[in-house]
Design a protein around this nucleic acid. Sequence first.
DNA 1: TTGAAAGCGGTACCAG
DNA 2: CTGGTACCGCTTTCAA
Lengths: 335, 335
Amino acid sequence: MANIFDIAREAGVSRSTVSRVINNQPNVKYEKRIKVKEAIKRLNFTPNAAARMLALKKTYTIGVVVKELGDVFYASFIHNIHYIADSYGYGAFYCNRNSTIQSEVNYLERLNKQVDGYIFIGEKTVSKEELEVLARSGEIVITIGFDLGVENVTTITIDNYEATYGAVEKLIEQGHRNIVYINAEEETVESSLRQSAYEDVINKYELNYSRVERIDYLSDSAYNLGTELADDLKKEKVTAIICFNDTLATGLTDGLITKGVSVPEDISVVGFDDVAVRRITSNNLPALTTISQPQQRMAEFAVRHFIKRVDDDQHHYHEKFKCVYVERESTKKSL
Amino acid sequence: MANIFDIAREAGVSRSTVSRVINNQPNVKYEKRIKVKEAIKRLNFTPNAAARMLALKKTYTIGVVVKELGDVFYASFIHNIHYIADSYGYGAFYCNRNSTIQSEVNYLERLNKQVDGYIFIGEKTVSKEELEVLARSGEIVITIGFDLGVENVTTITIDNYEATYGAVEKLIEQGHRNIVYINAEEETVESSLRQSAYEDVINKYELNYSRVERIDYLSDSAYNLGTELADDLKKEKVTAIICFNDTLATGLTDGLITKGVSVPEDISVVGFDDVAVRRITSNNLPALTTISQPQQRMAEFAVRHFIKRVDDDQHHYHEKFKCVYVERESTKKSL
DNA sequence: TTGAAAGCGGTACCAG
DNA sequence: CTGGTACCGCTTTCAA
């Protein structure tokens, strides 16, 4: 574990010169440069990133924090963040964090000064207080999918209310009257916005049926819910279900089918996110009709904005993206 | 952006005392401790992780490198690494890296000294030379899913050959004779092991039909391959296909069905990995029969081993896990 | 073109 | 229980 001093000694030059070589700076005589390079090879030297960051106060890396890296929801975000950042010479470290879960390690603390700023994707990855501390100390902070109302943080959100509203209306246009909303168990701004939209449409059209269920979407609970609800839904003549997200919708559909309900013949199901994957299921499932959020564009906006901020632009924004309803095979007209 | 010196001044103590308070060390008088804590709050101080790492030469974090974070293949690995590491007070930074792709940023360089060691998941995340440099300079290095034969690196692999061999035999037992192998386009040790197993079984049973296709599994190519191959396969009376991985198998099945081939009635399809998700498809797909690799146990082994290495155990291992054939709905007996 | 030296922000040993 | 100080490894003036 040689350091710059060892290299200097080995090459018979000063540390400054070594530093210049490492950083490809001019003003180093050719032979010395070679000598240094040889020494580096010989001693197996790699610059200590910690020391460098300490001196430079700049890391050229973005800290990306999500709730659960394994969740397919983040796939597109991460993919795009990676490639765009890379094209600017920026890297990204990703980490898992769910601030509602008790954890041994504090990622924010650990990330501190190892990154030039943060992109938080999804509520519960960071608390309002933490956000305030970061923003106040001048860090670049971007939140995707939520807005905690903290000054100096750029927020990138979607039209949760409008999108859900439109989807429910669409179902009504298709003749559905008894429509259920399946929400995520976790209380978030997103979940309540979407649910209000559902409720508001129900009221606007004066439907006399409505029902909301809440369920943890990280586990198999949606499947179980589907099996439990099947009989009830038949009894209540439900013909459509709209879900908080695709995972939920998929699990639910699977459970429903297990109980002999066919989708979309008996019941139409709509998801949210358009994550482009679905779990291996016990049954053959129809391709999911869903509300698609423009993750790629959101990710691009985030990274470009990040870089701009690094380059000293002090503006921050509140950007809201529009979702689009994508009709596939899990929905149909109600007769 | 206050530093420890500012806090010391503000609280009227020395930097040493501040450091003690930050690190919850004993031997600080109660009132001073309070004073320091207040100063920290007031000045919005967070310790500089870079400086701390530089002084400590220890980071309590693991660098996890994968090819594509969005790929469902890594979901279970990451999930488990996260939770187990956390229980030991360790964190993990994840990053995307495909060493065959030209990239602006060198993650290895950037990770240097920001982590206590590395877990590489999947070939192509690191070159043999890089591995040698890391291992030689005493870093903790673990590779999952491949073994580049570098000294002092712990490798965690699966029985690619045996597992594939068994799966093909299973198909033969079920009466299949004309079996195709669809390999990944990328040349890796894994892909060639699996393919050899297929070929060896074909030879052992003296089947007079065999066919291998290679295809990029990161795109939709598998779907297209399915549509292109459909007629051919019918003509050649193929009744079973075994694929390099689940993504490939799913896309292929989807393409096949589009062309009117039904799975498993006409053709049985087997995947590999058991990643528990599948892409949204154009058709209703049967649950996939696949070869399941014990990702959870592999991840656990990796983290536990990592921690042991940190605690100065110098052993390294070559651990090979067994996969199991999981029969679901995409395969059936051939009549 | 090169080297000396002063930080960067912490930690930890040693004295008191 | 507390403070002084050397040091971690690299970058960057400033002088030579």
